[in-house]
């Protein structure tokens, strides 16, 4: 635990002094700002049923698929490429602590980036004072969903980074896995074939893992423990795989 905090502190500091973090943050906030402005433009022209927060969070996957790999791809592959992993692992720390420390730092950054989008809602509140536009329920639900699902998504990014010593490969791998988890489940759930009775168990599984369905529920204020369990267990499993993957790589290094 002591080492975890040392690594976490170090990683957070390194993220804070790295220019790439600020470039990523500015790009992310600019992109989210455009989306938000677009949503508001639509709301001002045609009356809508749901609050802007719902529409805003529905597009969460765009930044997630591209931002998470950007934040995490460097973490382990860079250490392996430079060889600093060897010096790191010959101090009294375990592979698990290294992975968790890096994961923790990436997750904190992910959360703080999303926290920045709170400013968009603040500006909206400051200038409209419209209770409908600022429905707290979907907003809290949306942020809760981001926080919980982020556990899993960031873990996927770390896992991808542990697989290759090449940052670009790790990044692309991360994008592909995230795409599979977020969009893939949605596409598979839409297949007509799944309606056949023989595929009923598969259909149930896909429904359970449908990220967009989870978002819907969270936005409506339903916090289902099964969904929480999905993200927690997914994150744990992915991190365990990262640790095992890293150790396997060391054995054959």
């Amino acid at each position: 635990m002591r080492h975890f905090l040392t690594i976490l502190g170090h990683e957070v500091r390194m993220l804070l002094v790295s220019p790439s973090t600020y470039i990523a943050a500015v790009t992310f906030l600019a992109f989210m700002g455009f989306i938000f402005a677009g949503i508001l433009a639509e709301y001002s022209s045609v009356p809508q049923e749901s609050s802007p927060a719902v529409a805003f969070f529905e597009l969460f996957w765009v930044p997630v698929i591209f931002m998470v790999p950007l934040l995490t791809m460097k973490s382990i592959s860079e250490e392996r490429r430079l060889g600093t992993l060897e010096t790191l692992l010959t101090t009294p720390i375990s592979t698990g602590e290294v992975i968790l420390g890096k994961y923790g730092a990436a997750y904190l950054l992910y959360l703080s980036l999303w926290a920045g989008t709170g400013g968009l809602f603040y500006i909206l509140h400051r200038f409209t004072q419209d209770a409908f536009l600022l429905d707290l329920g979907p907003m809290i639900g949306g942020y809760l969903f981001i926080a919980v699902s982020g556990l899993f998504f960031v873990a996927i990014g770390i896992f991808a980074s542990s697989l290759s010593r090449n940052q670009a490969v790790a990044g692309i791998l991360g994008v592909v896995i995230l795409f599979g988890v977020i969009i893939g489940t949605q596409l598979v759930a839409g297949l007509a074939t799944l309606n056949l009775e023989a595929f009923a168990p598969l259909k149930a599984t896909v429904e359970y893992a449908r990220v967009f369905q989870h978002l819907d529920d969270f936005s409506r204020g339903i916090v289902d423990t099964r969904q929480l369990l999905f993200y927690f267990s997914g994150a744990c499993l992915t991190l365990i795989l990262s640790i095992l993957g890293l150790e396997a790589k060391l054995l054959h290094s």
Binding site: H3, I7, M14, L82, G83, T84, E86, T87, I93
Partner: peptide, 23 residues
Amino acid sequence: PENNPLPEDMRVSEYLYYRGRLK
């Protein structure tokens, strides 16, 4: 280790401090 791998973007005293904490 061989080739003495060091992190590129840290300051000398900062690096030694970090390593000391890990140790």
